[in-house]
Amino acid sequence: TRAREDSVHNRRIAGRTIRDERVLAKLFKDIAPRFTQRPGGYTRILKLGQRYGDSSEMAILELVERTERERKRAKKEA
């Protein structure tokens, strides 16, 4: 949510957690502009269960976005 508005203040707040400058730049320049119109719900968490060996919980974290092709399909089906 902070990356949707590119300002020095928001970059510094995000920089507290994301230490790599390249990753931070990619977040603000490439990833965040795709979600400017989305009000929330940027990620999807898929739980995989426990890892064999140490029984640690495993999950996949992915960014949720709809492409233009998916929007056209949804309109045709409706």
Results as ranks from 00 to 15, higher is better:
residue 2 R to Y: 13
residue 3 A to P: 05
residue 4 R to P: 00
residue 6 D to M: 07
residue 7 S to E: 08
residue 8 V to W: 10
residue 9 H to Y: 09
residue 10 N to C: 05
residue 13 I to M: 13
residue 14 A to G: 00
residue 15 G to V: 07
residue 17 T to S: 09
residue 18 I to L: 06
residue 19 R to A: 12
residue 21 E to G: 08
residue 22 R to W: 14
residue 23 V to L: 06
residue 25 A to V: 04
residue 27 L to Y: 00
residue 27 L to Q: 04
residue 28 F to Q: 10
residue 29 K to P: 01
residue 30 D to I: 04
residue 31 I to V: 15
residue 31 I to Q: 09
residue 31 I to F: 01
residue 32 A to P: 12
residue 33 P to I: 07
residue 34 R to E: 14
residue 34 R to L: 15
residue 36 T to M: 08
residue 36 T to S: 13
residue 36 T to D: 03
residue 38 R to M: 11
residue 40 G to F: 00
residue 42 Y to P: 06
residue 43 T to M: 03
residue 44 R to N: 08
residue 44 R to L: 03
residue 45 I to F: 05
residue 45 I to M: 10
residue 45 I to C: 04
residue 46 L to R: 05
residue 46 L to H: 03
residue 47 K to R: 08
residue 48 L to T: 03
residue 49 G to T: 01
residue 50 Q to D: 14
residue 53 G to E: 08
residue 54 D to L: 08
residue 55 S to Q: 14
residue 56 S to Y: 04
residue 57 E to F: 10
residue 58 M to A: 02
residue 59 A to V: 01
residue 59 A to D: 01
residue 61 L to F: 04
residue 63 L to P: 05
residue 63 L to G: 05
residue 65 E to L: 06
residue 67 T to C: 05
residue 67 T to S: 10
residue 67 T to F: 12
residue 71 R to C: 00
residue 71 R to P: 00
residue 72 K to Y: 12
residue 74 A to R: 02
residue 75 K to D: 15
residue 76 K to C: 03
residue 77 E to Q: 12
